[in-house]
């Protein structure tokens, strides 16, 4: 099963790019963007590729891959909400910021 190695390699490259994004991006929200998207697909492909190389491991690797795919956005969303709630500032490149409107409407509703 040689093409399993290709799938794994694709995933490994995306895992590295996600880490590079974590290092390079200017503020925590952009870091979350890079960290979530690239590492989710990267881990999914890398783990499933291992399942293709060793067919007897396929179902266990599928469970791990689907678990990563389901839980990664949830924990990233929790971190995003936490940094927004504890008012971490947005970087100076940010063009539009409607988060004040969001808070004000919430106060009016309650």
């Amino acid at each position: 099963m040689t093409w399993g190695w290709w799938v794994t390699g694709f995933g490994v490259i995306f895992l590295f790019l996600g880490s590079l994004g974590i290092y390079r991006m200017p503020d925590v929200y952009n870091r979350l963007q890079a960290g979530t998207k690239c590492t989710t697909l990267g881990a999914f492909c890398a783990i499933l590729g291992v399942g293709i190389i060793e067919p007897s491991w396929f179902w266990t690797t599928l469970i791990i891959a689907v678990f990563v795919l389901l839980t990664n956005p949830i924990s990233s969303h929790a971190f995003g909400r936490a940094s927004y709630m504890s008012s971490v500032s947005f970087c100076e490149k940010t063009k539009v910021n409607q988060s004040e409107d969001f808070c004000r409407d919430e106060d009016n509703d309650t």
């Binding site: 697909l41 409607q98 988060s99």
Partner: peptide, 26 residues
């Protein structure tokens, strides 16, 4: 959509100029 998203974000990350244009919308 996930695959498209990854190619998009990855291409932003590896470019040296880091072409991002972020914002917060409702």
């Amino acid at each position: 959509e996930i695959i498209r998203a990854n190619l998009d974000v990855a291409s932003r990350i590896i470019r040296p100029s880091l072409p991002i244009n972020p914002g917060v919308v409702i």
